[in-house]
Design a protein around this nucleic acid. Sequence first.
DNA 1: CGGGTGCTTGAGCTGTATCAACGTCTGTGG
DNA 2: CCACAGACGTTGATACAGCTCAAGCACCCG
Lengths: 242, 242
Amino acid sequence: MAGDEAFSALGAVGRKFRPFAPTHAEQVLLMELAGRRLVIKAGEELAFSDRAPQFAYVIHEGWACSYKQLADGNRQIIDFRLPGDFLSLISLFLHRPEYNIVTLTDIVASQISTAKLVSVFRQSSLLAEGVFWVLSRDMAIVAEHLVNVGQRDAIARTAHVLIELGYRLHQVGHGKATSYECPLTQKDLAEALGITHVHLNRVLRYLRDRELVSFNGGMVVLHDLTALSRIADFEPSYLSGR
Amino acid sequence: MAGDEAFSALGAVGRKFRPFAPTHAEQVLLMELAGRRLVIKAGEELAFSDRAPQFAYVIHEGWACSYKQLADGNRQIIDFRLPGDFLSLISLFLHRPEYNIVTLTDIVASQISTAKLVSVFRQSSLLAEGVFWVLSRDMAIVAEHLVNVGQRDAIARTAHVLIELGYRLHQVGHGKATSYECPLTQKDLAEALGITHVHLNRVLRYLRDRELVSFNGGMVVLHDLTALSRIADFEPSYLSGR
DNA sequence: CGGGTGCTTGAGCTGTATCAACGTCTGTGG
DNA sequence: CCACAGACGTTGATACAGCTCAAGCACCCG
């Protein structure tokens, strides 16, 4: 039922977990965890602050984001979640919906119950380590976003996330590091960067005028990755695979 | 050797892990993990970007912080690490020193090797869950810092961290939620908030003038927690125990 | 007593926010 | 097929939060 062939059908998830599922047994477990797919429409709230979390998810296709809503109506996007990424993992362990999650496109995902996850842990400490690794990497990403927002100006910040997204997508086999489809609106991106969408618009014009980046019609192109990486002080070690 | 009595000697760590170590067996394991204490002097770098991480630590006494150094000389403090908190956990799983850690005071801590940690996991899935929980909570804290820096102005930001620190210290039995010893310099705090120490100084004066906070001689006093919580839009659910 | 570290304050500048308006595209119903 | 609404992007004018640079102060420790 589930062999190497089926495993490789896991796509982005398989790519991410390969180091933690070297044997057939582990691949079967992983298939059980993430084999069953469902489609979720764009704009769905998968976790919301007042509901206890039942499930985590793994994304096979599409984009989502985690965010926190503030009392004054503003929101901060914590991270964009891409194919291969988990959703809601930490809420599962905290037994509390720590932040909201909304899909940005239609997505294909697998729903993961706590029970199933725990049972997988018991059966394979290697896969448990894999989940630890995923959580740690997500943490490193959020920490880098904090550095970005805390220390860099709007231009560097913008460049940094755009490079990061290309890098991460490329890692899971989507697009090239220097050009990728991107469903984000300027408002979304601004909310991740902690700047207003008006100002982001000017920043994007600046980057476009200097032929560094184009962000247009759902497509991001990084025309000069070297120059951009310098501007953004981008250092990819926090993203590298296990 | 290690019983309830010894367990309760674990102090901050014991308090945090109580839900994950209900039986004698688990308490013994936890003692093995965190029983052996060592003292580390203030200002020591425990993890540095160019060294592979060998150990994680749990703090019994004292403060540390995790931070990232930028090329331009600035640094962003990711989180202050207090008694009961782990250091370097994610670096252990990433097999890479993801960010730097430095002690802010002399600390008492236990060193934890990967091997020991893995062996504990195998012996108690409840304790493994506990470590998952710790990691998730740390993640929630960093995410909240991102929200803080991304969306709130300097005054709200400052109030928010000062409340958070009081809350966290109180949770592990240090000081009261509204007053605690705090070894941070204004520069440290500013680096966590993503503002300059000059500006932080003015913010602190503002808060002092309105008799909301005093930050002085290593002592923080929150004179009006209600007003502060309103200013900071502080909502403690991200810190609540398991 | 001298030098270092941290705190405080002032003056002027700049990056980003705010407010407001207009343009463009897409989908929808008459 | 046109009219319209709504979402998204663009641009300008103005305001202000926070930064930079610079100097002086207070304290502690050797």
